[in-house]
Nucleic acid binder design. Structure first.
Lengths: 191, 191
DNA sequence: ACTGATATTAGTACCAAGTGCTAATAACAA
DNA sequence: TTGTTATTAGCACTTGGTACTAATATCAGT
């Protein structure tokens, strides 16, 4: 009689490997009290790659993430339309690396980054800095979502070097984020 | 004559491997136009482990992080002190890649990211999301600055699943950023 | 030009953790 | 008993190495 049915063993095998991809066929054979060959047949049937490939997968994922974990430099999102000192539009595709592992919801600072860098970009000046901002995350955004962000200049006070920008982000037409940005600029109009 | 001196080759070798740990001795030999044995001697002298070990290192680092899966991994800046549902402290070193090329001033979204992720981290809950935030960039921050950010839970409304967090960032004792974060959480106290 | 040190290359045996294949045996079911 | 499925065994081969020995090459100093 079989210690366990083949099916059961394969189910546990998948689990075990998923839990710890660093386990060798020999260790698995000992664990399940079968021959190494059986483990290999099982892996084939389940199309689970060999140890080295599994490790390489984990490593290369890590590598990608490491590279991507600092992409927070230039403008976040792609600017698709801009009319300086008036309005601007950018698109940002939310990927796995932008969301919380736990719940798959985009981390706020990415949405803020897109909005903020668009607010900076719309200002027609050498120097534009965010002074103050009031923002609301209206609805969770998830991986795969395409966020369309619109910035509109709604007010200027050249005496105080201030410009007010309203930013709204939507996914599939639904508002997910709104913010008001008070920007500082060095120059006034037409200087 | 040597194509390059041994030293020079070894310097480049270290760099190359650091950049891409997935490279084999054979590829390196081709790249530097030397024999595989030379590459191996170089690796020994520099005590760089073999390909498989390198990959395993990358993979296991990744694995550790994944296992933790606490938001503490996903924080921008390094958390140096935390007392859940009460306060937290993180440090973030501003580098060249975080500032505007034009004026050397840190982009707002990096400061926001540090503050926001600290506000998320301080919440003792599986799920914590920023709902609303009011922030002020008090003083410009520059490359080389060390930003110390403190988050303090200043209020809770468990009926509405809300927690209010006040975040203050300083550089050399001077306040550079303040923000108030309204956080959403799934669970109430002691649930 | 000769000697010695350093650097490079070549070659062998061996290892881990496999793949790919064939063949034998075991277990079970009808 | 026969057929099917499952398991085990064994062998040759692969990658990307280690560990070691031995032969050359290259260069510097006298």
């Amino acid at each position: 009689m079989l210690r366990r049915t083949k099916k059961e063993r394969q189910r546990l095998l998948s689990e075990t490997i998923a839990e710890n991809p660093f386990v060798t066929d020999e260790q698995l054979a000992t664990q399940f009290q079968v021959s190494v060959q059986t483990i290999r047949l099982d892996r084939m049937e389940l199309s689970i790659p060999e140890l080295r490939e599994r490790i390489k997968d984990v490593a290369s994922k890590n590598y990608e993430n490491e590279v991507k974990s600092l992409p927070i430099d230039e403008v976040i999102g792609e600017i698709v339309d801009i009319e300086l000192d008036n309005r601007a539009l950018s698109i940002f595709d939310v990927k796995e690396e932008h969301v919380f592992q736990r719940n798959g919801i985009a981390r706020g600072h990415h949405l803020f980054a897109q909005a903020n860098s668009l607010a900076v970009a719309v200002i027609n000046d050498e120097l534009a800095l965010t002074v103050h901002s009031n923002i609301t995350f209206v609805k969770p955004v998830r991986a795969g979502n395409r966020v369309i962000t619109k910035a509109i200049v709604i007010g200027r006070d050249d005496k105080n070097h201030r410009t007010k920008v309203e930013v709204t982000s939507t996914v599939n037409g639904e508002t997910v984020f709104v913010g008001e940005f008070d920007m500082y600029r060095t120059k006034g109009k037409g200087e």
